[in-house]
Structure formats: structure tokens, C-alpha cells
Design a protein around this nucleic acid. Sequence first.
DNA 1: TGATATCTATCTAGTAGTAGGTAGTCAAGT
DNA 2: ACTTGACTACCTACTACTAGATAGATATCA
Lengths: 210, 210
Amino acid sequence: MIRRSTNIVRPEHNEIPVTKPMGKTAQAIADSFATMVMERGYNAVSYADLAEKIGIRTASIHYHFPKKSDLGGIVLQQYADMAFSAVVKTDPDHPQSYREAFAAMMEPVRMITNTQGVSCLIGVLGAEHASLPDALQNGVRQFFETQEQFLTQLLEEGREAGAFEFSGSSRAMAKVIASVLQGAIIIKKARDDIGHMESVLQSLNAMIMP
Amino acid sequence: MIRRSTNIVRPEHNEIPVTKPMGKTAQAIADSFATMVMERGYNAVSYADLAEKIGIRTASIHYHFPKKSDLGGIVLQQYADMAFSAVVKTDPDHPQSYREAFAAMMEPVRMITNTQGVSCLIGVLGAEHASLPDALQNGVRQFFETQEQFLTQLLEEGREAGAFEFSGSSRAMAKVIASVLQGAIIIKKARDDIGHMESVLQSLNAMIMP
DNA sequence: TGATATCTATCTAGTAGTAGGTAGTCAAGT
DNA sequence: ACTTGACTACCTACTACTAGATAGATATCA
């Protein structure tokens, strides 16, 4: 049974209403933390590392983020917001709109591709899964589920509109795409080879475009 | 220019000749370490964890593996040996032999798939790349390079023999396969969902089999 | 307006616990 | 007797985290 809808709906990932926006320092901490995790992994980033990089004391970081898991949670949430915010309005009468929506989803991937030494935050956390605090484990799982749902819907509706062409179910293809992106990003980091990512992205396009 | 060869040659990954085989305890330490890394990540496994699991003191682990990087190195080497040892003799006159060789390469993947809570050792280490000792960083990079070379050759010769069918270069397809496996394994762990892996493996077969 | 109080963001100085790693001892097996 | 594999006991460095103080900004109120 195919569910019909005119537009790709922005998925909700239970956003806690952020009543107070983050200050400059807090955001700097979050940004540095995110980058370092994408390079080294969650467990390899210490408050001391962060403090030195930003130029404050570790205690000041604890002021903004009492526990490491708080910091991890914020960073994960911001990352998910970024990843799912690139929404392009889709229209069944304009197949191109689905391709544009897909391209928009690839924007964060392109950013990671072009930043040396980093891979996807979620992939890194996924690799360390069992060692993470519960809240982060759940966040990671939820990200993957949301991403699959989002991709499945885009592929399904895009195929009906004639924008995509592939065999098998949309869900199966969504699983392949999510997997190939995660894997390719990790390999490009480990091999320090942007070419790997570029090749895979090209193959991926060939896989779904008519 | 296509390189012709009758057989898939087992790649060398500069194996240091292990003059002395490992004792029972040493192997138990290595095995437990490998499993725990595949669950949590390299940096989240301590000598204390290991010692408790095996039932010895941490100092005893240092006796067998003076530094953590030694332990990591051995485990990485054993993992690579396992991954690349499944060699099936290929024969251009028997296309089925290439499919069998491919299936043999998937055997370790199937093992990981069916073990709850673990993902591929190399993928985990890849995710933590920047925080690893140099020797491990190089080992991981080399694994990916060897794997790509191995897969490329198998796909190329298998396609010539009529065993595989796909568009694009063999190398590009090898990159896709290596990536999709890594990604899928991480996602199945994070989502605790074997179904994800099974779906992806099926799609992967459909991608290269005529 | 001036005094008082509260808030923000940082600091110094510490905590207990854990990390990887070392020195030196000792018993059992060959 | 020598090797093997384990031990006890320890070390230094680092971990996340806390307590308490302080300087400066901002709000409240007599």
C-alpha cells in the first residue's frame, strides 16, 4: 500500500523547545566538541582538550554543560537539525523537485566530504554505540530511523513522479543509500581520500537516476 | 588497460612473521579485546575491563601485550587475516567460482551480522581514526586499500567471466560495496536491527548479479 | 538616582576515581 | 635451571566533575 502525499514532511525529532538560545561561548564549545568527535570519537575528547582549544578552563565548560552527556546531547540535536532542515518543496508535477530535494539532503554530506579528517557525527557515535550514555544511544538510533523514513518517502514519491528509477523497494534503496553514505564517509576519513567519496557519490547518483 | 590473471591472488599485508604462536591466555585477551572494541570502540575498552572479563589482573595483560597499541595491532592483524583468508580458487571457465569467491568474502560480514551488538572492527577503528596510535591508523588505512584492490580484481575478472553484471568501473563498484558494508554494519548495531543488514546484503547481490 | 540585589561567566583549587604502564616476586612446568 | 605466566604493589597522568570565590553586567526598588 503506497502512501500518497504531496510534500515531503519535515520529520519531527522531539525537539525540546530551546527557550534560551545558546551564548557565544556555549556555541563555540559545542562546535569544537562536534568537530573533535567527528575526528577522534566521543570517548577521545576530554574537557581538557576542549578547554585548551577554546582558551578557557574546564570548569567553565561545566558551567555551560554540566555533564559530558549534556554536551553530547546538544551537539547531536544540532547535527540532526542541520541534517534534516534542508527541505525542498516537492511537487509531483515537477520531477526535478525531487532531485533537488535529494541534492539538498546531500549538502551536509558534501560538507563533511570537503572537511579533511572528519566523518559524520552520527556514524562515529554509532561505531562507539555501546560505550555511550543512554540518551546518546537513543539519539543515534532515532537519527537513523528518521533518516530512513525520510529517504524512503522521498524515493517512493520521487519514483512515482518519474524523478528516480531503481529496482526493489524504496525502503531497501533508502537502507542502501544511508549505509553507503556512512561507510564511504568513514573510509574517506581513514584513507584521507576525498576521491573515494566522490566516486561513491557518483555511483549513488547513477543508481537512482534514470 | 585490464590486467589479466587466472586467480585472485591473496593480498599481502606485510605480515610480521609470528615466530611464536600465541598462548591460550594471550588469545583469550585478544579475542575479548576485539569483541569489546567492536561493541564500544577502542578508547572505551580498558585493561581493567578486560582483566575482569577474563579473570586475571591488569598487569598480566601487560605481560602479554606491553602496550595497548600492541594489543590493538595484533587484533587488527588477526582480523585482516581472517577477512582476507577466505580464498576460493577462481576459474574463468566457471563463472560460478567468482560468485563463490564473493560469497566467501561475505562470510565474515555474515558473522558480524549475526552477533548482536558488534560491528566491524575496522569500521570502528576508522571512526576513531585520529585518536589511534600511528600503527593502528596505518593498519586501518591499509586494510581498506587491500580490500578495495581485492574486490576490484574479483569484480573485474568475474565480470569478464560473466559471473557479475553491473555498469561503471569495477573499482567504482568495489568502493560502493566496501562502503555499503561498513555503513550497514554500523547502522545495524546502532539500531539493533539484523533486518537492516539482511536487506542491504540482498540489495547488494541484486546490484552485481545478472 | 543611588543602593541593593541578582545573574552571568569565568576563575582557582580541589575531589575521587580510573587510565595505561612499571618493578619486582614467585610458583609451576619442561 | 630456565622459561612461562601469573602475581602484588605501585606510579604518574589524566578523567569527569565540584566547591567556592570573583568581577562585571543588569535589573529592582526606596
